[in-house]
Write a protein that binds this DNA or RNA. Sequence first.
DNA 1: GCCAACGAGTTTGTAGCGCAAACTAGTCTG
DNA 2: CAGACTAGTTTGCGCTACAAACTCGTTGGC
Lengths: 112, 112
Amino acid sequence: MSVAGDEAPAAAPSARALVALDRLVHEPARLAILTVLAEAEEVEFRFLESVTGLTKGNISSHVAKLEAADYVTVTKRFQGRKPVTSYRITATGRAALDAYRAALSELVRPPT
Amino acid sequence: MSVAGDEAPAAAPSARALVALDRLVHEPARLAILTVLAEAEEVEFRFLESVTGLTKGNISSHVAKLEAADYVTVTKRFQGRKPVTSYRITATGRAALDAYRAALSELVRPPT
DNA sequence: GCCAACGAGTTTGTAGCGCAAACTAGTCTG
DNA sequence: CAGACTAGTTTGCGCTACAAACTCGTTGGC
């Protein structure tokens, strides 16, 4: 199939949908973080670090953005004398992730 | 489930794989372009414009990157007196897109 | 014939972002 | 007490995606 100028745009798993993906979720580091958070109730900083392979700095700043968007909540407490930071995904965050997954599921399905 | 410090990272559709996604393909505009190209043998500039909703400028520069990576080829010809630019995905480009899709298919699958 | 509008892209300018490296604050060890 | 370690945060900067401006030619109006 070859496509010229202004033929009927019937084709393609909506290219528009791809262009409109939520950039906040789309960023690989944040996508990894959200994915991990979506599978566990609560996750500690160090676990995120080891499971994603991201540096502390990057986790910190990406999570800050997710928190600003109300996609995750941050809890700080002490375990003995050590500070421990942990994260949870919010309902908003879960909804955003689900929407993102839905938009992509079309892409991933083997082309007809 | 709640996850502390350094438990066994059995969970998550490999967060590492997400972090390592090919940025060249991952960019939404380029992902849309590649997806369209993957379904048609050859596609004209104007068709890309209408199907993706991207501006001419953005198509031009994104395609330039894809061409630099040898993911697409560009053909210019004249139709009557008007210039017409069209694109094809290369084998390399198709492989990159397939790899990308494979990496994401894990994410899209409903979490167990 | 001349000039304005249009078509098909390309180039440029800039704001924002993600990454790595440096830094902070406190704890533990010898 | 000094130095190393833990647990993050902040900073600096290079890159990039987007929009706006521009190029080069063609077409239409008068």
